[in-house]
Design a protein around this nucleic acid. Structure first.
Lengths: 141, 141
DNA sequence: CTAGATGCAAATGATTTGCTAGAAT
DNA sequence: ATTCTAGCAAATCATTTGCATCTAG
């Protein structure tokens, strides 16, 4: 789905359509780099020099709450945002922090976990940790 | 393994044995609640009223670097620490933040991920998200 | 017009760091 | 006697919040 369509859909719910929001969402949908809020800020600043980080966070939180993007939080580092809201897995470089998608059939273990723990399980997340090809290369020198 | 044994082992590596460290590690090994640094701080304060949060963090980082404990980071919330350093999975309550262990055979997907992505995959992590029995109960009232 | 959004700056909260006195070896 | 650690306070950094101004509807 395009940024404009998502924002039109949100307008039905009383969320205003602003050019900043359009720029933020377009960038997120058009990249597979899982940018941080700061990455997005730097990119959007090219078109809207006056934009503030507060607006970036505000927009990202709004989009997340409506289920249009995912936030990937990694403890110490800043969160990364994913324009694909469908559950899928990620491979994270422990060296440079890069995150790449890993698509495969989802684990069907949630019911089993619910039964065994009594939790009402609503979702799950898998991350693989390793060193990306570029960092492996860099480590050789 | 007991706290004392781990600390004796670390002494060989030049890490000093202090009563604060012993108290921190003993608490971590004796609980399955995955406490936060603050939880540990509050507990250790009972025995060492003068202990500081800095010491807690310092000790936790030292233990983590030597592979004796795990840090579980969850974006917004504070990290939780696990005295069991073997990889195992967790179920997290999205309501109260409680974390419980979920033991099952580990996923054997790391080689496949390595092949498909070019990453040198060293580990992985799975979290299930849901609502714990207590919070389900609370939501009824 | 007017509720909701922006931009800015100040606040927050977890974690880290710098420093001095103190304790472990 | 050295060197690492504890305790404390100040610093850091990502993210949030308060508020006055502005703008989409």
């Amino acid at each position: 789905m395009q940024a404009i369509d998502i924002l039109k859909q949100l307008k039905e719910k009383g969320v205003r359509f602003t050019p900043q929001r359009q720029a933020i969402l377009e960038y997120l949908l058009g990249t597979d780099t899982h940018p941080t809020a700061e990455d997005i800020y730097n990119h959007v600043k090219a078109k809207f020099p006056g934009v503030s980080l507060g607006t970036i966070y505000n927009t990202l939180n709004m989009l997340k709450e409506h289920g249009h993007i995912l936030e990937l939080s990694y403890g110490d580092m800043s969160s990364r945002f994913d324009g694909n809201p469908e559950n899928h897995y990620h491979v994270v470089c422990t060296d440079c922090g890069k995150v790449v998608d890993y698509h495969r059939p989802l684990l069907t273990m949630e019911d089993e976990v619910s039964e065994k723990t009594g939790f009402k399980v609503m979702g799950h997340r898998i991350e693989f940790y390793g060193v990306c090809p570029e960092c492996q290369e860099a480590l050789l020198h």
